[in-house]
Computed example of a mutant assay.
Amino acid sequence: MLTANLGNMDRLIRAGLGLVAFFAPLLNVPPIWSSGFFAYLSMIVGLVLIATATIRFCPLYRIIGISTCSFK
């Protein structure tokens, strides 16, 4: 079982940034995403951010020992 280590504000920020990172290449704004590599990379990062916000768990936080969750 994964122990939650993301607080509500952290989840909101991750979800927002994840949505922007996922949809920006589809809109091609700014045009840096004309390159397929950067477009796919941005979309993958966006999906990871959205997934971690959804499940309230960040593996990197676990490794570093950080928790923004207010309950334990």
Rank of each mutant, 00 (worst) to 15 (best):
L27V: 10
I50L: 14
N5G: 00
I55P: 05
G65Q: 05
F22N: 04
D10V: 02
A24L: 11
R14C: 04
V48W: 05
Y61A: 03
G18K: 07
A39N: 04
T3N: 10
A15N: 07
R11P: 01
V48M: 09
L26Q: 10
I55T: 10
F71Y: 12
L2W: 03
S42T: 06
W33T: 12
T3L: 05
A24S: 11
L27H: 14
F23P: 14
V20Q: 10
F37L: 03
A39P: 11
C58K: 08
L47C: 13
A51M: 11
S67Y: 00
L60G: 09
G16T: 03
I50H: 15
L47D: 12
D10R: 08
T3W: 02
R11N: 07
M1V: 01
S70L: 08
L12R: 10
G46I: 10
I13S: 11
N8R: 14
L2N: 12
L19C: 12
T52A: 04
R11K: 15
G36P: 08
I64N: 04
G7Q: 08
P31E: 04
T3S: 09
C69P: 02
T3M: 07
T54A: 15
S35L: 08
S34N: 11
P31G: 03
Y40S: 12
T52L: 09
Y61I: 01
R56W: 02
S42D: 10
G46K: 04
G46T: 03
F37I: 03
L49Y: 09
I44H: 00
I32V: 09
F22V: 01
G7C: 03
L2R: 11
L26T: 14
A21N: 05
G16D: 05
G46L: 08
P59W: 00
G36K: 08
R11S: 13
Y40Q: 10
A53C: 14
A51G: 14
D10I: 06
N8C: 08
M1P: 01
G46E: 06
P25F: 07
G16H: 04
L12G: 12
A24Q: 04
Y40F: 15
A39T: 01
L49P: 13
T52H: 03
C58Q: 03
V29Y: 02
S67K: 02
L17D: 12
Y61T: 00
P25C: 15
R14Q: 05
I50R: 04
L47Q: 13
L12Q: 14
A24M: 01
I32W: 06
W33R: 11
R14T: 04
M9P: 10
A4K: 15
G7T: 03
A15F: 15
F57E: 04
I55R: 04
M43S: 10
M43A: 09
I55A: 13
L6N: 07
T3G: 07
L2E: 14
L27F: 10
L26A: 13
L27A: 09
V48G: 06
I63G: 00
N5C: 00
N5I: 02
A4Y: 15
I55W: 01
L41T: 13
A39K: 09
P31M: 02
I50M: 14
